[in-house]
Simulated scan of single mutants.
Amino acid sequence: MALYGTIINGILIVVGTLLGLFFTKIPEKYKETVMHGIGLAVILIGMQMAFSTEAIIVVLLSLLTGAIIGEFLHLEEGLNRLGNWIGSKFVSENKNFSIAEGFVTASLIFVIGAMSVIGALDSGLRGDHEVLITKGVIDGFVALVLTTTLGFGVVFSVIPVVVYQGGIALLATQIDRWIPEEVLNGLIIELTAVGGLLIVAIGLNLLKIIQIRVGNLLPAVITVVPIYYVYHLFV
């Protein structure tokens, strides 16, 4: 079953969020320090991923084109509006921002990354769900910690996680018909690097060092595909 790993990943995020609700009343200074720890860990993970690149020009062009597309489509604003809309269905008006922040932050952390792509590809290509189940355990723990600081909105991140990873897994069942293995392996490396830089940006946002509109950079994980293909043909 191609979607088995994705479903387990989603369930573990929900479980982590529900457990996190029991720890929401811990003192603010503890929450702040925990969030700083998460931010630092997220930056480290992102840097490790970003350093995997073998073609920095592909990463750069992907981010540039992704930023232009994202700003034109106002993706960051759209994500926040979606989070606010979801929040309005569950909490009073004055708490919507918390729901939106939890939804957007958690979604970006859980969706962007090598494990999402590689795990979903493994599920679809080989029926191997180990990577996604491992990711699910990590995501569940992160969801627990995020919920203590960002609230119940974290649980709604399960929707983009399941749609994104499930879509890749289903696509992967047919992808070997279209993309040669050599090209696919190189693409995964550059996709990992682009995702890593976006994760670094999330970490910087969590630490409140700078406010990067990560949502408007998301198209980079799509534009990297044609850019790498052209790069592979000529370089």
Rank of each mutant, 00 (worst) to 15 (best):
V111C: 15
G196M: 02
D128G: 08
I86N: 13
Y164M: 06
Y228D: 01
V224R: 00
P180F: 04
V221P: 02
K95V: 02
L204H: 08
A2F: 06
E182C: 03
T105R: 05
A55L: 04
K135E: 06
G20H: 05
G215K: 01
H74E: 14
V137K: 09
L198G: 08
L125Y: 05
Q165V: 00
H36W: 08
E32R: 10
E130Q: 05
N80S: 12
N9D: 14
T147Y: 03
F23R: 09
G10Y: 02
Y228P: 00
G166S: 13
G140M: 04
I159Q: 03
I189T: 12
V154D: 00
V111H: 02
V91F: 12
F234N: 08
L19H: 00
G78P: 03
F22V: 06
T24D: 09
V104L: 09
V161C: 11
S62E: 12
W178H: 06
G20A: 08
V230S: 12
I210P: 02
A50G: 04
L146D: 11
I26S: 09
I133G: 06
M115R: 03
T147C: 05
V230K: 10
L233H: 06
V163S: 05
A67T: 06
F152W: 15
Y30M: 15
L206V: 03
A55M: 05
L44T: 14
I118R: 07
A193C: 02
V183C: 05
N216M: 12
Y228G: 01
L73S: 11
V137M: 15
I7Q: 10
L217Q: 06
G124Q: 05
A55T: 00
L191E: 00
L79C: 00
I179V: 15
R213V: 10
I43P: 00
L64W: 10
F97K: 15
L184R: 13
V158A: 14
F110G: 04
